[in-house]
Each structure stands twice: as structure tokens, then as C-alpha cells.
Amino acid sequence: MNDWVYFAGLYDSKFEAYCAVMWVEADERIRRTAQPTEVEVYRSRNGKYGVRFRSHTMGSERRSLVRH
């Protein structure tokens, strides 16, 4: 699956969006669910920040990237 999944909500600052990234990653570590391999903070057209991720099921190694 290579489609982006958008995390609910937009944030006024990049810092708030980055905190949401940390929450998503921590939640998945606690639950040991399928982790996203790519996490990205993006800027919407209205200037707010959001979080999106996508999972890759290929390969046994899982890596997490945060792009700014």
C-alpha cells in the first residue's frame, strides 16, 4: 500500500504537527501494530500543518522518516 493516510486535524504550527507525529509513533510502539514507514509533516493550502503517513508491507525492516 503506497497511498497516504492523513492524520485527523490541521495544526497552526509545525511544532504542533510534529508532536502529533510523535504521538502516532509512540501509540504504534505501545500497541505493536503495523507501523507507518514514512511519516511526513506537510503544509496545507491554507497555511496550516498536517501529518500524513503511509505503510509499506514489503521488507522486514521498518524505518520511520520525518520530513520537514
Rank of each mutant, 00 (worst) to 15 (best):
M1P: 12
M1K: 11
M1S: 14
N2W: 00
N2S: 04
N2K: 03
D3F: 01
D3N: 00
V5S: 08
Y6M: 03
F7K: 11
F7Y: 13
A8E: 13
A8P: 12
A8I: 05
A8W: 03
G9T: 15
G9K: 15
G9A: 15
G9W: 15
L10E: 07
L10S: 07
Y11N: 04
Y11Q: 03
D12P: 01
D12S: 06
S13H: 09
S13W: 07
K14Y: 14
K14M: 14
F15G: 08
F15I: 09
E16F: 06
E16Y: 08
Y18T: 11
A20P: 02
V21C: 14
V21R: 01
M22K: 05
M22D: 01
W23V: 09
W23C: 10
V24W: 07
V24D: 02
V24I: 10
E25H: 11
A26I: 12
A26P: 02
D27N: 05
E28G: 06
E28D: 07
R29S: 10
I30C: 10
I30Y: 07
R31D: 01
R31C: 06
T33G: 12
A34C: 14
A34E: 14
Q35A: 14
P36Q: 01
P36L: 00
E38G: 01
E38I: 08
E38C: 08
E38H: 10
V41Q: 01
R43W: 00
S44F: 09
S44L: 10
R45E: 10
R45Y: 06
R45G: 09
R45L: 13
G47P: 09
G47S: 12
G47A: 11
K48H: 08
K48I: 04
K48D: 02
Y49F: 14
Y49G: 08
Y49H: 12
G50M: 11
G50K: 13
G50I: 12
G50P: 08
R52Q: 14
R52H: 13
R52C: 13
R54Y: 04
R54V: 04
S55R: 14
S55W: 13
H56C: 13
H56V: 14
T57I: 08
T57M: 09
G59S: 08
G59A: 02
S60F: 07
E61G: 02
E61D: 08
R62H: 12
R63F: 04
S64V: 02
L65V: 02
L65S: 02
L65K: 02
V66K: 01
R67A: 00
H68L: 04
